[in-house]
């Protein structure tokens, strides 16, 4: 049961009204421009480091591009134990 004042769905008829309108990222060219700007920013960030003196706490921070290379830590998206609601009661009975 949902409280009527809490959740309201404003889709439906308004969907027709907006469906033909084009928005910023509906044009693939704009996405390419955005990605291009992003890659250029990354390049600038890589270069600019050589012009800034560092005050590292640890010796590894003094190495060039250490901050950039830390992205490796983020390339390990985990996958925990996920259960589809449909399978509950079958093979996953023991887990829930």
């Amino acid at each position: 049961m949902k409280h009527p004042s809490v959740v309201r769905t404003d889709t439906g008829s308004s969907n027709q009204q907006f469906s033909s309108k084009k928005y910023l990222f509906d044009n693939p060219r704009n996405i390419k421009i955005l990605l291009g700007c992003f890659y250029v920013s990354l390049f600038i960030l890589l270069i600019i480091e050589f012009f800034i003196s560092k005050h590292p706490h640890y010796p590894w921070e003094a190495w060039p591009e250490f901050c950039s290379i830390r992205l490796c830590g983020m390339c390990c998206p985990g996958r925990g134990r996920q259960i589809h609601p449909e399978t509950v009661g079958k093979k996953t009975r023991g887990l829930l």
């Binding site: 590894w60 190495w63 591009e65 250490f66 290379i69 830390r70 992205l71 490796c72 390339c75």
Partner: peptide
């Protein structure tokens, strides 16, 4: 990245 980080 991994090789360079490993080296550092």
């Amino acid at each position: 990245g991994v090789f360079y980080l490993g080296l550092i």
